[in-house]
């Protein structure tokens, strides 16, 4: 852990150790990243495009296979897991995406129900139906995101902000400990972005869900997080209080890249 890191190993919920990802083309998206996130934190991850924010989030739930290094969730090594064990671990980490990634032709409530898929067992997994208990949970999350009146319309008829709220309802239905938010407001206009981030903060505070949120907008990153991590060229170059992000730190993060 570099001089910027903070010692949180004792009570960390997410622990990333020496995580490196080299894509088949040779791009080193993550370069030995080490990071500890404690339960209940709201962490904003900032940095220029291609700095590795998205890859970091996707390595945590193994949508992307890291090349080397480890990810521990509550002391369990995610990187060593396979099959059902990995799927059970994924239930603890919900994810939302820049493009919402709803099943566009399905209704809103069916989309929220998919948040319960990890909890279905046995022959049930072969059927497109859900038990009463799963349905109740899905409706409750939909109400919580204040979009229950859209439950029976097709997801692709909603606006971007509404779709992201449905995606958050799907995430909440999953009953997660961690929320991985990959540029959740990058496709939204500024007013809608604030609405979506308010829900994210609400999930963080009321449900105690630990949030890791990559975000382009520096002001929003500082406003919502209690900790900001900045990445550049696959490395963490800032890790600290939002208030301590000064001009020097800023130029270290966003300083000219390319032909220099």
């Amino acid at each position: 852990m570099g001089p910027l890191g903070r010692a949180r190993a004792g009570r960390s919920l997410v622990r990333v150790e020496g995580l490196t990802k080299v894509f088949p083309g040779g791009t080193r998206a993550l370069d030995s990243v080490t990071l500890d996130v404690a339960k209940g934190e709201f962490v904003s991850i900032i940095g220029p495009s291609g700095s590795g924010k998205s890859t970091l989030l996707r390595c945590i739930n193994r949508l992307v296979e890291p090349t080397s290094g480890r990810v521990m969730i509550g002391g369990q090594d995610i990187t060593a897991m396979r099959g059902a064990e990995l799927r059970h671990a994924r239930r603890r980490m919900a994810m939302v995406f820049q493009q919402f990634n709803l099943v566009r032709r399905s209704t809103v409530i069916r989309n929220v129900l998919t948040g319960r898929l990890g909890y279905q067992e046995g022959w049930r997994t072969l059927l497109p139906s859900f038990s009463k208990e799963h349905q109740d949970l899905a409706w409750k999350s939909l109400e919580r995101l204040e979009i229950a009146e859209k439950a029976n319309v097709r997801a692709d008829t909603l606006s971007g902000g509404q779709q992201q709220r449905v995606a958050l309802a799907r995430a909440l239905a999953q009953d997660p400990e961690i929320l991985l938010a990959d540029e959740p407001v990058a496709s939204l206009d500024p007013e809608t972005a604030v609405v979506v981030l308010d829900y994210l903060r609400d999930m963080n505070r009321r449900d105690g869900i630990t949030v890791l949120c990559s975000i382009h907008h520096l002001e929003l990153a500082k406003r919502y997080a209690n900790r900001v991590i900045a990445m550049r060229l696959g490395k963490i170059v800032y890790d600290g209080e939002p208030g301590a992000l000064d001009d020097a730190a800023y130029s270290r993060i966003y300083g000219r890249l390319g032909y220099d």
């Binding site: 739930n61 949508l63 059902a84 799927r87 059970h88 671990a89 994924r90 239930r91 980490m93 919900a94 994810m95 995406f97 493009q99 919402f100 990634n101 709803l102 099943v103 566009r104 032709r105 399905s106 069916r110 998919t114 948040g115 319960r116 898929l117 990890g118 909890y119 279905q120 997994t125 072969l126 059927l127 497109p128 995606a167 799907r170 999953q174 991985l180």
Partner: peptide
């Protein structure tokens, strides 16, 4: 995208096909 999203919920491959692929390809 939806395939990725459902994989991230902890769904198994059959569930991903039933809930994310089939609704898309049915028409």
């Amino acid at each position: 995208g939806p395939v990725e999203a459902l994989t991230a919920t902890g769904a198994n491959p059959i569930q991903v096909v039933v809930h994310a692929v089939i609704p898309q390809v049915m028409p």
